[in-house]
Amino acid sequence: MAKNTGKPSEEAFEAAWNRIGKRAYFYRIPDAAEHYGRAGKIIHARPTPSDYILTVDGLTAYAEVKSTQNRTSLPFSLLKKGQTVAGRQVLAAGGVYLIFAHNLLTDTWYRIPFEVVRAVEALGKASLPWTELENFKWNLNTKT
């Protein structure tokens, strides 16, 4: 399988929300790669809290899109330190932080509330097996 850049998953994520028109709005937060592309050099930018800020049918959430070729689980190491810190702060402030995980091997999407990651981390685990994420499967065509 080709190298996972994450870009095809982000494009599919954006296309899904674009299909429902005015019911959804997302803002892509510029990341280090985008800053590099604009400036032509490495610049010092603040860590981003997530890939997107997403509003759908009145609900606003921070949304992080992750793609992986891991056969057994979603490793939390895919989340950057700044994203993990932001997720904790968003939850503490009463907000919503969602991880949209794309298993590239099965082309299956999952919509995982950050609270679930926190609960699993509290048990001393560093990943969530795909078999335990069945209740979080997400269909790009339903967008809820």
Rank of each mutant, 00 (worst) to 15 (best):
L123W: 15
T60S: 13
K22Y: 01
V120E: 03
N70Q: 13
V96M: 04
I112C: 02
W138S: 11
Y25G: 01
S77Y: 01
D51W: 04
Y25K: 11
A122H: 15
E64D: 11
K3D: 12
T55D: 00
P129L: 10
F136W: 05
L128P: 15
L79G: 12
A24K: 10
T68Y: 11
E132N: 14
T108W: 10
A12T: 12
W109E: 01
R19Q: 15
V120Q: 02
Y110I: 07
K3Q: 15
K81D: 10
A12C: 06
K41P: 06
D57Q: 08
Q89K: 12
Y97G: 02
N141Q: 04
L54F: 07
A39D: 13
S77W: 04
G124H: 14
I99A: 00
P47W: 02
P30Y: 02
L128E: 08
V120G: 01
K22A: 04
S50L: 02
Y27M: 11
A45E: 06
E121K: 07
V96I: 07
A122G: 08
S67E: 11
N139G: 13
L78Y: 09
L128Y: 06
F114E: 02
K7P: 15
G95H: 04
A33Y: 10
N103V: 00
L79I: 03
L128G: 14
S9F: 12
G58F: 00
D51A: 10
Q69V: 13
D57N: 08
A15T: 09
Q89M: 10
Y62L: 14
L105C: 09
L98R: 13
E121D: 08
W138F: 15
Y97L: 00
G124K: 11
K143C: 14
I43M: 08
A33V: 13
T84Y: 07
G37H: 03
V116C: 00
K7R: 09
P47Y: 05
K143I: 00
I42V: 05
P30M: 11
H44F: 00
R71W: 00
E121N: 05
K80M: 07
I99D: 04
G82Q: 09
A86R: 05
K22T: 12
W17F: 15
M1C: 07
S50A: 15
G58V: 06
T108E: 09
L133I: 13
G94N: 05
L79Q: 10
A15I: 02
R38V: 03
L123A: 06
E64G: 06
Q69R: 15
I43E: 09
H35G: 01
P49D: 06
V120Y: 06
R46Q: 09
L54M: 09
T106C: 01
A61M: 10
Y110E: 01
I112D: 02
R88D: 14
L104Y: 09
Y97S: 01
Q69L: 14
P47H: 12
S50C: 10
I43T: 13
A63C: 11
L91H: 08
Q83G: 07
V96N: 04
P129Q: 08
